[in-house]
Write a protein that binds this DNA or RNA. Structure first.
Lengths: 350, 350
DNA sequence: CTGTTAGCGCGTTCAA
DNA sequence: TTGAACGCGCTAACAG
């Protein structure tokens, strides 16, 4: 008789009254009358097992209520089937669609997702990254900005696929799926100029990408002879309150403006609310421009224009990039640089 | 020289040219000149190690860039330091505050969170649960409803702490932190009645709890002689579009109403938008009642009333319940049943 | 197609 | 305070 491995040694042992020991492959194997390895294969590579063995195993699995221990599996196979996703915050996130699509796709492909909220504290973010890396994820998706240099180094050292989403930075860590925030600013400027607006203003939160959009907007306006663009920058996260305070701040300091460009649709909604409470008509007295098309948020007001970003599509592309890399045979690691673009939606004129 | 354990077998072996072997305790131990066990202790229980050994180890850790493998650690210790959180969707979630607070608190306590989006497919949800259980989480938090019976059984079998949040159901699986949706409906009805409203209507998504709130609202109204409450129920998720279509549906079928009760603030915002586009004044022509106080969403309109739920506090209480249970010595598992309550906010009258 | 052997990297448990 | 043995539950790699 073959020697059995592990704790439940030989057939002579009593009915095993263990306190609450978890079911293992061995238990299932005993019930099914096969070796543990066969059970393992029947579950993970069913095609490598004969039809009838597979059925015996499946029956045993159901009968016992066995749930494979992925910790052990991951350790042995050096594959965790885990993808970490970092995003700034879960509340009111312009990344919601992206994350949803990404998670759906990954889940469907048999991966699970570890969500990391990076928030606004660089130090905490670093600890978070280290903790996450300890789980040995198979890949990482970054949406927010990774703030510290040491974080970037750690990531590189980890030697796993990394996708940066929602941006097109110059020095990507690895893969990239996004669009140019500079182009967004530029396009916004041109569009509004072409509609005849002259007195611009900005309400934005202090988010790196948002500020980049603002800067390029301002630069483009300057090219067209507009030198001063009153700007209100408030602390994240983006809330309606930010929009209300932003517009209030501008108007209360006597700024005369025809159009307010906002860092996100949520902020834009706040601006709309403040405008309404001051009796300003939109877009006649004041036009408002949002960003992100957060779950069709723009529909709150028929005249709210916005820059629509197809978060859903970005999510799917990110997922695909990762899955391709996971399935890449050797190291056929093609660089991934996808410009997803964006769409300017002017609801005032449609 | 002491015999080495594991893969790098005996002293005779060559310089170990492994392909890309990950750093292990052993590597760090070698650099620090101590045993692997000491490194392990220096990292997880620093108090059990002498000051100078600890420093030698820490230096070695930094020099090598070692990141402990939690897969191995969890397997050996039978503790994953992982908490799974199930919620219906990430987009526009009324649970956002709760999840944020919960994650923050857990992260700070050294736990990580696996997010599961249960969405609207019961079968997929079941697979998701099984996959998640495979990671051997130390605890699970449920916000949405767990749809299948077999899911509930599996959960119970897992033998880990479970917290159901945002509700006060009759037959909880384990712990409970929430409030009574029936009471919300009742309180809403009473409040609006006391303000003199007579012609009620409802716009809700087809979410179990939302419907329970509606039902109890309707029941309470009936007690006061109001028998017909026109109701528009739309498919989840809650979006602005739902609110717009909901109100449009009501009005277009000729419903005369003074006050619309909505299943969430997001829906309420949609209703407000539709009302505005039809030239209805709020609350003079039509009062609107939301639910959730989603990130102060109610501030979009000065006259939007709402039922405020303190998601942040719920999140913290859930975290505390879990952490208490984790730290419970034996099985001093006190039952947890917290009624967090809710607050009716009538912005029209303040 | 199935079984055997030998770890994956760490923490538990004891002994020193 | 430190170290050695052992096994957590599983899979890779080979053998049959």
């Amino acid at each position: 008789m073959p020697k059995k491995t592990g704790r439940s040694a030989d057939p002579a042992s009593p009915p095993e009254p263990k306190k609450s020991a978890s079911l293992t492959l061995i238990d299932v194997a005993r019930v099914a009358g096969v070796s543990p390895m066969t059970v393992s294969r029947a579950l993970s590579r069913p095609d490598l097992v004969s039809e009838q063995t597979r059925e015996k195993v499946m029956t045993a699995v159901r009968k016992t209520g066995y749930v494979p221990n992925m910790l052990a599996g991951s350790l042995a196979s050096n594959k965790s089937r885990l993808v970490a996703i970092f995003l700034p915050t879960i509340a009111n996130s312009i990344f919601a669609d992206t994350v949803q699509a990404l998670m759906d796709r990954l889940t469907q492909a048999g991966y699970q997702t570890l969500l990391g909220l990076t928030g606004y504290d660089a130090e905490q973010e670093e600890k978070l990254l280290e903790a996450v890396l300890g789980r040995r994820p198979d890949g990482i998706v970054l949406t927010g900005t990774l703030h510290t240099e040491s974080s970037r180094t750690r990531l590189a050292q980890a030697g796993i696929p990394v996708v940066e989403a929602w941006d097109l930075s110059e020095d990507p860590i690895d893969m990239l799926v996004g669009f140019s925030h500079e182009k967004v600013g530029e396009a916004t400027a041109r569009h509004l100029l072409s509609k005849g607006y002259k007195r611009f203003s900005i309400v934005s939160i202090g988010d790196p990408r948002g500020l980049r959009r603002c800067n390029s907007l301002i630069a483009e306006l300057k090219q067209h002879g507009i030198d001063t663009v009153p700007m209100q920058v408030l602390a994240p996260p983006a809330t309606l309150q930010v929009g209300r305070e932003g517009l209030a701040g501008l108007l209360d300091r006597g700024v005369a403006t025809d159009v307010v460009v906002c860092s996100s649709d949520t902020v834009a909604q706040g601006v709309l609310a403040e405008a309404a409470s001051r009796g300003l008509r939109v877009p006649e007295d004041l036009a408002v421009m949002g960003f992100g098309d957060l779950s069709s948020a723009a529909q709150v007001h028929p005249a709210l224009s916005t820059v629509k970003v197809d978060g859903n599509r970005i999510g799917l592309q990110v997922a695909q990039a990762l899955l391709d890399r996971f399935n890449a045979p050797g190291d056929s690691a093609r660089p991934v640089r996808v410009d997803t673009g964006f769409t300017l939606i002017d609801r005032a004129s449609t």
